[in-house]
Design a protein around this nucleic acid. Structure first.
Lengths: 339, 339
DNA sequence: CATAAAAATGTATCCGGATACATATAAGAT
DNA sequence: ATCTTATATGTATCCGGATACATTTTTATG
């Protein structure tokens, strides 16, 4: 493999000129530049970017910590990241962590060993751990989708509380009074915020909060299916179920139909995320649309700006949501409304 | 940031000893090793792996070219890759290419510039292009999922022809005679092979191949929905539709139900892939299960073996499939069977 | 205790671009 | 033609580990 010096020799110039001809062509005369370029061509020279990166101290890599790529929402987020990173000449090092803190910490350490310049974390956990204790130095990190609230790093999030409130209000307007919630993992701030939005709406409508209508889930189809089974068997069955993501909603719909009940006639079901399958469920799913790709591109953009020193104070970006009403939610039956 | 030499100085040893204490501890006496380790601790030294990689000429990165991550099958494949790469101390550079050859070629060039050691391509296209013309040097590449047949690189694939044949036979056994196919993009070998398997089964059953029962798609929910619309309106409507992936099958089922027809009573629908949503569609989808994660882990494993010189001849790995019969396929109606 | 063999450590150099600084050449002003 | 700038090019060095080879120390053997 040919290098700098061989090209210089063949072109009859110095290595500095070769380097300049490639990096800052305007500093090199046309004649010289052509000599260099033809030498490069003749030798089939390719600059060793590992060397360049090593010298510059910038790897050009961004570590992305994602609980699981096998999730349509995260997949779209990653897609958005990839596109933005590519535009900005950065690469994405994808790390599936299954939400495992040790694994997240391990990958975050790639920054310490100069294998990556920064980290995007899609979960509410600081993989740099105690290191941040002092809170002094800005961590090369952006927190997106599910964010920590006490963090000093840039974040990209949805106003989950407002979104959940909007969805709950939609259900209330349809006359529902017993609205169940299938939650995400209990440690998640995302779940906490969505639940807060749900309670906001209930309170405003003067409806008492009923703990028994909350059911835990883990964002998978199966957990939605299982949770719906529990809710159906309640003494006072809910007339609507608000699921914290679409997968659980689709699982819940199946379970409800298996019980011989109808959606939305007997029970309305709402989701969150608006994944590609949402309009194709039966009935099509009422949900909250999130700009998933934008989460990714914004996170990457913020991280690069941070790394390149264009950011002073950690911004907290809030992306917009949209209530998408489809056929899985409908009016509560008359008896219910009158209760 | 502290380096090699500072550690050496503080520990009162040479840089070579520091390096050895970390890389080959058995070559360093316990006493010296402890001195080095405590110096490392005191200085909070982290070896610059960019430097090490640069020197060794191995980046430890694998480029993964995927048409789109926002696809549940590919997402699982990538998940499998990530896990295997992590085990073997390699990193995955994820590249969403949208099946764009220029983009694929661009990313593949990362190998030339030493940013990556090898490439895993999940599509039937050689991103190293004409370079392979001579077919001399082994390309640092593994082709998985949708593979080229004339390639000299290792491949990981399913016996798509046998799988499609198995599915078609299943439909034939249920009495179907007019079996439509919603295909993938026409340039895909995957589509070609699955179609061949379909024809094998028809031929064996003595049923004439009918071109009008083939409908193009692009593996999306919408394309399945649209294609089903066309098939429903045929003069002689098919009694079963074999879709080349589950997304299209789910799209097709929705379209069929929208026409007031029932699945499987009026039309049976089968998919391919067995994505997480398959058992949750209504009715649950009959499909071909593929070991998606294994595609990923096997591809990574092969590529690393290739890069590290443990492979002589390019292996062609065939992974097993499984016919998963659920409720979306059922017996053809009597009239149909008697026709 | 001498000597050979093994183990431990050190010295010097390499990897391949990037670039500060020095030098040389060309263009412009008077 | 002379001197000042601007432009172009070259020289030398750095980045931070890895390691071939040299040297020193320790252990084993007769």
């Amino acid at each position: 493999m040919s290098n700098n010096r061989e090209v210089a020799k063949l072109a009859g110039v110095s290595v500095a000129t070769v380097s300049r001809a490639l990096q800052k062509p305007e500093l090199v005369s046309l004649k010289t530049r052509n000599k260099v370029l033809s030498a490069i061509k003749k030798l089939d020279y390719r600059p060793n970017l590992m060397a360049a990166k090593f010298r510059s101290g910038k790897s050009g890599n961004l570590v992305v910590l994602v609980p699981t790529v096998a999730n349509l929402f995260f997949a779209r987020v990653i897609s958005g990241m990839q596109e933005e990173a590519h535009k900005r000449s950065y690469s994405i090092l994808l790390c599936n962590t299954f939400g495992n803190p040790e694994m997240e910490e391990g990958y975050a350490k790639m920054v310490h060993t100069f294998q990556a310049d920064g980290v995007i974390q899609l979960r509410a956990y600081n993989p740099f751990g105690a290191e941040d204790a002092g809170g002094n130095a800005a961590l090369p990190m952006v927190n997106a989708c599910e964010v920590l609230d006490d963090t000093t790093v840039p974040t990209v999030a949805l106003d989950n509380r407002a979104a959940a409130r909007a969805m709950t209000e939609h259900l209330l307007q349809l006359g529902h009074r017993r609205i169940a919630v299938i939650k995400g993992p209990k440690s998640s701030p995302l779940t906490r915020d969505r639940l807060a939005g749900y309670r906001d709406a209930l309170e405003e409508a003067g409806i008492a909060f009923d703990e028994s209508l909350l059911c835990p889930g883990d964002f998978t189809l199966h957990s939605g299916h299982k949770a719906a089974g529990v809710l159906i068997d309640l003494n006072e069955r809910p007339t609507a179920i608000f699921c914290e993501n679409d997968e659980m909603a689709i699982g819940a719909i199946q379970r409800i139909k298996q019980s011989g009940l109808r959606v939305p006639d007997d029970i309305s079901v709402a989701g969150f995320d608006d994944i590609a399958f949402a309009p194709f469920s039966d009935p099509p799913l009422t949900t909250i649309a999130q700009p998933a790709e934008e989460f990714g591109s914004t996170a990457v953009s913020l991280l690069i700006d941070l790394l390149e020193g264009r950011i002073k104070k950690a911004p907290k970006v809030i992306l917009p949501f949209e209530l998408v009403v489809r056929a899985s939610t409908g009016p509560a039956s008359i008896e219910e409304t009158l209760q």
